[in-house]
């Protein structure tokens, strides 16, 4: 009996793949790492963020209301994967983007995406 239950539990946990990361419920640890990366990389040189007092650059769009943004840079579906690809290498993700490639590893870029999706200005 116990063996059957354990087998079933094992089957259940392996059968269900974890859901793809969602923009609506980013991982809190990733959000915190992403915020630190945003500060260290100097994203504020072009963008304003609601919880970063300085710098608040004006070269790029303000991200204070990012939680209300639609498609990334107006064209890409606003998914964590797309956002991570865009913040790391915007000219490849969206040809013609004036935003340059940024010094982030793919893992760091997904942390930054989690931070951005976790932003709420209200």
């Amino acid at each position: 009996m116990l063996a059957i239950a354990m087998a079933m539990a094992a089957a259940l946990t392996t059968a269900c793949k974890p859901p793809p990361p969602s923009r609506h419920d980013p991982d809190a640890a990733a959000v915190a790492r992403g915020r630190e990366l945003v500060r260290q990389t100097g994203c504020g040189a072009c963008h304003a963020f609601p919880d970063i007092a300085w710098p608040q650059g004006r070269a790029g769009p303000s991200l204070v209301t990012f939680d209300e943004h639609g498609p990334i840079a107006g064209v890409l579906p606003n998914t964590p994967a797309n956002l991570a690809a865009f913040v790391r290498d915007a000219p490849v993700a969206k040809p013609g983007s004036p935003m340059p490639a940024m010094p982030l590893s793919p893992r760091e870029a997904s942390d930054v995406a989690a931070y951005l999706h976790g932003l709420a200005d209200d």
Partner: peptide
């Protein structure tokens, strides 16, 4: 750094600085 020790130096901060150094 850029802007006299205040920003990390990378492509993004360089563009941001040139575009609007007064904001920074």
């Amino acid at each position: 750094t850029l802007g006299a020790g205040i920003l990390p130096n990378n492509r993004g901060t360089l563009q941001g600085w040139i575009t609007d150094a007064q904001a920074l």
